[in-house]
Design a protein around this nucleic acid. Structure first.
Lengths: 170, 170
DNA sequence: ATAATACGTCAGTTATGTTGACACAGTCAC
DNA sequence: GTGACTGTGTCAACATAACTGACGTATTAT
């Protein structure tokens, strides 16, 4: 019988490697969201508001349905958060012209300013990480994260320019 | 005056690049947690339970304080979740020998089985992404995620073997 | 002996999500 | 044009996972 202690076990190494990946994602995400969360709570807002502000800023004229598809929450959940943001003057809605049932969402100047402040820390983090890691590592980072996503969502991020991305999801 | 339309703006490209990073993290995390969440809800558990099960499995004999430091939640929040898991027989606590105030946490056989099931999908995702991306990309992925984390948390993941990691955090 | 730590618990609150039901306006297919 | 479907909003009730603040007990450290 082989001595189990001295045996190199590729399955174990593989498992350890995958677990490190799981943890890395957890810790990075935890630290990535901590600062914006703290800023938001001072304004009486939460992470959910940040997500809406972010994606409306990213996809101007996005519709409610498109936003729901990105966030993967119910319209009732979105409604509360979106209502807060409209009431506080961060977002405006106007009727769609192509389809008048749609409400096209856009940041106000005030909304853009908040978005800038909230994402600044996150952009700084990523910028620092990219700079320290180098271009090749950045490419690997992107490739692996895309690989972790559901396959059907990948194209949207790869090809389409950001303003059209959400729309193309239909 | 320079024609703004034909000018290549490195600041804009940089911003676009960073935003892609932010989104990639959001989408990957969203898809990464979706399946375990669905499994958990069938058992009357939530993502918070998964995190506890995961880290207790990862760091056997972890103490409550150490777990709190990883999760970054209050002990009152942890208490409810941990209580559920103990009551349902997924986790056992015993008194520490070195310090009898401590409660050392460990998965039961049942807990290990649940952990395995929950993380299976996540490990498969990461394994697939790693395989498709290649070793170099994996290295880049890890480097960038470490760079995104708060600097003071990096060592813990780099050097220490997993069972000691949490303990060393003190 | 006193202070600090590890853990637990009670009570109340907030943020963010869920289901289900219903309404209305506008678009599409026939 | 009528009927079906779609986009949006809203009401109500509920679940989960976090929070703050206060207090208690056992144990360890100074």
């Amino acid at each position: 019988m082989t001595d189990i202690k001295t045996m190199v076990n590729p399955l174990f190494l593989r498992e350890e490697e995958l677990r490190r990946g799981i943890e890395l994602l957890f810790y990075a995400y935890r630290d990535f969201t901590a600062e914006p969360d703290a800023m938001l709570s001072r304004l009486g807002l939460g992470r959910a508001h940040h997500r809406v502000i972010y994606f409306v800023g990213r996809h101007p004229e996005i519709t409610v349905t498109e936003l729901l598809r990105i966030l993967r929450i119910t319209k009732q959940s979105l409604s509360r958060v979106l209502g807060d943001l409209v009431r506080k003057g961060y977002i405006v809605q106007r009727q769609g012209t192509r389809d008048r049932r749609q409400r096209l969402l856009e940041l106000t100047e005030r909304g853009r300013e908040l978005e800038r402040q909230l994402s600044e820390n996150q952009r700084r983090r990523i910028a620092r990480a990219y700079r320290e890691a180098g271009a090749e590592a950045v490419e690997g980072f992107r490739t692996v994260l895309l690989g972790i996503m559901d396959p059907e969502n990948r194209q949207l991020l790869l090809s389409a320019p950001p303003e059209r991305t959400a729309r193309a999801a239909r």
